[in-house]
Amino acid sequence: MPVNMAEDGNVAPGLSAPIGGKKIFFVRHGKTEWNNQLRYQGATDIPLNAEGRLQARRAALRFSLAKVDAVISSPLSRAYETAEEIASFHKGAAVEKTSLLTEVDFGEWEGRTVAEIRENYAEIFEAWRVNQLNVDAPGGEKADDLYERCGELSKLLLARPERSIVVVGHGAMLRALFPRLLALPRVSYFWRTRIDNCSITAFGADAGRFVLLFQNDTTHLKVAEGRIASLPLL
């Protein structure tokens, strides 16, 4: 019997997976002063700065003409402020908070610059850079707990009934989450991908699995504001 290629994107090497079904768009929050100072923020609640608020506005405009059924955010203010901007264009899509999206707690590293961490925690910092899913920041969230948290969030998002969801989170947490969404082995992903402030990454969710559609799209931060709403998402 002939195989229906449209029904299964995995039947042969090189075939693109279908992009029908639910879409989940992940947005990293806008910039903060600590981002600009290269300070680790983690679970510390640092608000957006002026640049970050402008970035959030631009991200919101990117979604303004799209259908958005739900907006889900980390409870930390820099993410929640970004999420509120996005939700403001979509009647009935009030921002939902979940602690599963909270940024990784970096313990003793929080508030310190990269240079300060290198100077005072050189050995463990380099080990963490190599594989953050198996090394803990001193006094911070355990790598095992982060891995399990990402698994819980993956199940939650897959079970959501909405067809178009925007999720607003944080750089380290999203870097840990994306391999779980793709059912990849527990390997380091942190330093092998970019997730810029207010970038958009999209996944399709269909037939009980996630498919990466695109990652780290920042076009809306680079064009004239009047053009942003017309930029395609898919």
Rank of each mutant, 00 (worst) to 15 (best):
P18F: 09
P161A: 09
D45R: 03
P179M: 03
A56M: 11
I200T: 07
G92L: 06
N49A: 11
L212N: 05
P2F: 15
V104G: 00
G30I: 01
F106M: 13
K67N: 12
T44G: 03
K23G: 11
F26D: 10
N49W: 01
N49H: 07
P47H: 03
Y40H: 09
F26L: 05
C150G: 14
R149P: 09
L177W: 07
A60R: 13
R175N: 08
R163M: 11
F125V: 05
L100Y: 05
F89D: 02
V166P: 10
A183G: 06
L153W: 02
S64A: 15
G52P: 11
R28F: 07
A12G: 02
E51K: 07
R209H: 12
V187S: 11
P138E: 04
A159T: 05
D144S: 14
V187W: 07
S230M: 13
L153I: 12
N35Q: 11
Q37Y: 09
H170A: 02
Q215K: 06
F106P: 01
L213V: 02
T219F: 01
V223Q: 09
D206N: 07
D105V: 06
E162S: 08
A202L: 05
A12D: 04
P161R: 01
A94K: 15
R62P: 00
A79I: 01
I195N: 12
L234K: 07
P232S: 14
L233D: 01
R175S: 13
L133M: 14
S199N: 10
P47A: 04
R149Y: 08
E225F: 05
R58M: 02
Q132E: 13
L100G: 07
P13E: 10
K142P: 06
E225D: 15
G107K: 03
P185S: 10
A70E: 12
Y121M: 02
G107T: 06
G208V: 04
A66F: 01
H29N: 12
L158Y: 01
E103W: 09
V223N: 04
Q41C: 11
L221I: 07
Q132C: 13
K31A: 15
M5L: 14
L177Y: 02
